[in-house]
Amino acid sequence: MNNTSQNDNVLEIKDLSIAYEPGKYAVNGVTASVKRNSITAIMGPSGCGKSTLLRAINRMHELYPDIQTKGDILLDGQSIFSMSVIELRRKVGMVFQRPNPFPNMTIYENVVAGFSLNDIRMKKSRRDEIVENALRNVTLWDEVKESLYRKGTFLSGGQQQRLCVARAIAFNPEVLLLDEPTSALDPIATLKIEDLLGELKKKYTMVLVTHNMSQAARISDDSMFMYLGELVESGRTGTLFTTPKDPRTEAYLTGKFG
């Protein structure tokens, strides 16, 4: 493990290509890095490969044997493909586009699902502490502390999404992957999630796929712009938004496509 990657870049994506069907690359030769304790936004028009890239980072594609992946991703300098997938997913949590709490579990059980599903046992008091902390971190505690033992699916969409964030951070991951986490939410719930992500930045590194340019501008530190599977441009969000180098980035930012 060398020192620079230890300090600066949590993730280094190296010449990554992903194909759903042989020869048809949804992500093509992407090389990029993600800085520690920052929010990196991945933007681009629909179908450009944002989700595909994001899902490579926790090896989600392995669920579908037909998907081919080339290239490498380093987490803290170590190839994610050399880790056990369980270890990797402990370090890299994920929040999906649609809130997806486990419908058979209570709010409480949902928060500690990562532990129970991995047979990690602990004292009830420790579990209570984790639940309360995680729910406080996502500013859901005051809303649900009276109903911890109700099913998570009774919550509103925005609350469910915060519950899903809580479920991901209860594990105390290094990196949090978020795939359009607010696209199913109303503006107020969206703002809450955005505030939350800004707050969580202190502890976690986040990679955020978003369709919403103003969201990227509001909360991200770095941005990547993808087009047709390729990484067109990446850099500080402020720079990328004000002085894009590539004409395609500029076209996207000015609303010419997407």
Partner: peptide, 9 residues
Amino acid sequence: IREAAFALG
């Protein structure tokens, strides 16, 4: 739901 479970390792 399945993916959520897998994402937790």
